[in-house]
Design a protein around this nucleic acid. Structure first.
Length: 120
DNA sequence: CGATTGACGTACG
DNA sequence: TCGTACGCCAATC
């Protein structure tokens, strides 16, 4: 079974890897959106792929703070995919991000744009 | 191998 | 302002 996994792990240049890299750069207590990451990578219209990357981020090392990634509305669209629907919200609150009704409060203020912060 | 789905976003009416 | 349609690419059925 390690055969298939090894092949993917050996590539280390996939679109997913780039997504993981950006997500891991998200400062604690901050959040970003799938579109922002996708745009930063040059695939603004492929924001869905970012979501797919997150889906594969489970078990990645170092741990990918997927809970810091939300949709354009600041809604915890991916909370459903965590171990528990409350895990994502709990993690965000733990980092100082206020979440109400599965929605990030002050999202605009906590928004972390890689294209801006990283100043490519 | 073809059709459908999906942690989104933008465009159009 | 709100609702619907489309695009994008990979994985799954």
């Amino acid at each position: 079974m390690s055969d298939k996994v090894k092949i993917q792990d050996d590539k280390l240049s996939s679109f997913f890897e780039q997504v993981y890299a950006v997500v891991r750069l998200i400062p604690k207590g901050r959040v970003t959106s799938y579109g922002a990451i996708a745009k930063y990578l040059g695939t603004a219209k492929s924001s869905r792929m970012v979501g797919w990357a997150m889906n594969s981020s489970h078990g990645q090392t170092p741990d990918v703070p997927a809970h810091r990634v939300v949709n354009r509305n600041g809604l915890l669209s991916g909370k459903n995919h965590f171990g528990s629907p409350d895990a994502m919200e709990k993690l965000l609150k733990k980092e100082g991000v206020k979440v109400k009704n599965d929605q990030v409060q002050d999202f605009k203020k906590l928004f972390w744009d890689p294209a801006l912060e990283l100043e490519l």
